[in-house]
Every structure is written in C-alpha cells, then in structure tokens.
Nucleic acid binder design. Structure first.
Length: 271
DNA sequence: AGATGTCCCTGGAAGC
DNA sequence: TGCTTCCAGGGACATC
C-alpha cells in the first residue's frame, strides 16, 4: 500500500519530468472517493508548475489552481511519454505536452480533487487538519510530548489520527511503538517525557528507513499488486500474530483498536 | 473540543 | 467446485 515514503518516491519519479507541461486533456474513469470538483475540460491549456507533497497527498500545482492526488490504499501513478491502452482500473488520466499521468486504483479509495488554490475551502478541508511532517524540522520531541498530553485516547489511535504527526499509518504505528517499547493501548497523555522522546525517535527512524527502501517498494508495488510490501519482510510485529518476537521470543499478539489491527509484544512493550 | 463508530471499494483468502 | 463472509487500508463524516 502506498505509505508516505512511497508517495514521496512517486512524487520524485515524475515531478521534474512533468514540470512545465501544458495540459491537453483530463479524463476520469469510474468515480473515485470524491468528485473532481470542476469540469475536466476546463483545465485544458493550464501548465503544471510543480509537484509537492503534504502527508500522503500529492499537490500538482498548476499555473492556476492545484490538483490534490491521494493514492488511497491501492493507487499508483504512472507518467510516461505514452502509455498502453487504459485498463478497467485506470480512473484518472492527464494528457500533457510532456507525457501522460495516469492513476491506477482498483479499490478506488484514492482521489483527485481540483481546488482553485490551497486557501480554497476544498483544499483546507483535506489538508487543514493535518499534523506536522515527521521528517521535517517542525517535528520536535518536546512539542510532540506536549501534544500527546492533551489526548486521552490510546497512543496507537492518536498516532493514526494524523492530526499531531502525519505519515504514521497502521503498519508504522505498530512498528514505532514496538521500537519505543510502548504498549499500543497506553493512553497518550500517560507517556512520560522520555518515553515520548523515544517514540518520536522511533517514528523518525522507522519512516526514514522506509524512505530509504521506498524505491524498491514502488517497483514491487506496481509489478505485484496487493503483495505485502517490503516492510512486512522485516517487520518486527506487524502481521506477525502468533510468531515469536524477534527481540525476546514471546508470541506476538494482535488486538483491534478502532476497527484496525494492532500488533505488539506484551513482554517488550509496557503500559 | 475530543473520542468513537461508520462508511467508502475491490480482490484475495478463508470458511462452508 | 462455488458460494458467502471477512478482511485490508486512509480518512472524512456523523454522533455523542
């Protein structure tokens, strides 16, 4: 599934090549998560200025307006001078003077939304509530601790909510909590400052490592749809229920938190 | 306001 | 073998 590192690798894979391109046509397949929000033909003639990222959203900046692209859980983007005939799961296509940008998304959890600007209500609704970027300087250990102290929900669910820090998905949340030795059901406001700092470091570490492996992930992902990603190959706890903890040998447990699976080691991770 | 539950969608796996 | 059910995932939204 496309996580923050894959979204970033995707961005880098075509940002430079599409910059400066003039849009020739835009066409949609089956409905995605949200409507585009404008008449597709009205974008013809506009120029792609740059491609940025915020959380798991790609921001395709045009000379006027911006396209917000989210890959959902099964989405992938291709950009090439020309592409093979469209398949049944290709639901968005942008033809430009420099190539074709295509979204392939079987489960259609993804989205492409047009907003006149980032200040527009549509963009603010999607991006306004996002927390800090975990791999940028704004992600500060002490500020992280202060933010956690205001939350009574289980730490795993607070991480997943994405309003304190973005990019910690279901897999990374379990892995980072294992790395920090913290039980996923612990109330966020019960983390001591040192433990919050450990968790902060674990999040940065786990995401940086994923970014470093992102290129191979992307290749795997596009060629092997639905295959377990690179991360599971050496996950410490995610997806390993019943298997032995790589650190202490205790059987890994699985619980449900907010309709999501959480994996942890009851011996290594304490409340 | 924060917390919680629901829903969107498809394909693959598991159960009958 | 063929059916049904469950599950995965991010995140907006409604409700309390």
């Amino acid at each position: 599934m496309p996580e923050l590192p894959e979204v970033e690798v995707t961005r880098r894979s075509f940002a430079d090549r599409i910059a400066g391109a003039r849009i020739l046509a835009l066409s949609m397949g089956k409905p995605l998560r949200w409507p585009l929000g404008c008449e597709p033909l009205s974008l013809a003639g506009r120029v792609v200025h740059s491609v940025a990222r915020r959380g798991k959203y790609l921001l395709v900046h045009l000379d006027e307006g911006v396209l917000l692209v989210h890959l959902g859980m099964s989405g992938s983007l291709q950009f090439a001078p020309s592409l093979p005939e469209r398949g049944v799961h290709d639901h968005f296509e942008l033809s430009t003077t420099q190539g074709v940008l295509r979204l392939h998304d079987p489960r259609r959890f993804g989205a492409v939304v047009y907003a006149p600007s980032l200040d527009d209500v549509r963009a603010v609704k999607l991006l306004g509530g996002l927390g800090v970027e975990p791999l940028e300087l704004g992600f500060d250990p002490l500020a992280f601790h202060r933010a956690l102290r205001l939350r009574r929900a289980p730490i795993k669910q607070v991480l997943l909510a994405g309003d304190i820090v973005v990019g910690v998905g279901n897999i990374y949340a379990s892995e980072a909590l294992f790395m920090a030795g913290i039980h996923p059901a612990l109330r966020a406001d019960k983390l001591s400052k040192p433990r919050a700092q450990r968790l902060h470091a674990a999040i940065v570490s786990v995401l940086q490592r994923a970014v470093a492996l992102g290129g191979s992930t992307l290749r795997d992902f596009s060629s092997a749809e639905g295959q377990s990603g690179y991360f599971q190959l050496d996950a410490m706890v995610y997806g390993r229920e019943g298997q032995l903890c790589r650190a202490c040998g205790t059987a890994i447990q699985s619980i449900r938190q907010g309709q999501r699976s959480t994996f942890f080691c009851r011996s290594c991770q304490k409340k």
